[in-house]
Amino acid sequence: MHIDGWTLLLQAINFLILVWLLRRFLYRPVLAVIAERQAATDRVRSEAEAARQAADSLRQGLEAERTGLPAERDRLIAAARSAAEAERAALLDKARAEADRALDNARAKLAEERAQALADLQRHAAALGAELAARLLRGAPVAALTRPFLDEACAAVEALPEAQRRALVDGVDPVPVCLVAATPLTPEDAGHGRDRLAATLGRTVVLTVAEDPGLIAGVELHFPHSVVRRTWKQALAEAAEELTRDEPARADAATTAPARTDRAALA
């Protein structure tokens, strides 16, 4: 048996060339296509896996959200209840405050009306009392009271401070003074009054005499700019005024009555 060395060598070379040729024209392109398809498959698979994971996460989120729905509902209901309760309490407080305010207003108005009615009653009673007293006193024998009232009026002028006495005479001399009495004056009473005023004022007094039954009793000394009154008419008017004053004002008036009387007399 003979082995041809050239054939052996050529066949070995032929095979190696065939290996290169098939590597170039068969394996490389086919393997490249397979690898490319595998890569595409892997890519699609990874995308599908990513999509599946996204779907899973979304599903888990939805489940968690669905699980939390009752708690959220309870929380919202509780919040709504507490808000409604707070609003109801606020409305009640507001209504209560408005009712209290209306009640206070009504009470104040009632008190004011009552005070007004009481004041009206007092004024009416005072006027009625003064009217009654004036009617009763008009028929009384008041002539004998003229002299004491005259003395009292002169004493009031004497009790005035020096500055006020100067203001009475107003710098004139002789001083014109009108003596008004409720009853006709006797010449003695008129002379007595003139002398006493002249002594008090330190000037000559020209006295004129007048009569006014409306005074009920007493006298009025009319100076050039002032009048000194000592009459029952004035006393009744002051009494009526005092009765119609408020209680505190009336008490205050009681403590300062003499001085006010003098000022009123001088007005």
């Binding site: 050239w6 054939t7 066949q11 032929n14 065939l18 024209f25 068969l26």
Partner: peptide, 28 residues
């Protein structure tokens, strides 16, 4: 150049040509 060498050349040509033609339009 013996017969097996010649036949092998023919087979090589056929296989290479066939592979080249078959892999000309590969698609993914």
């Amino acid at each position: 150049i013996t017969l097996p060498v010649v036949v092998t050349w023919g087979l090589m040509a056929a296989m290479t040509l066939g592979a080249a033609l078959a892999t000309r339009r590969l698609r993914v």
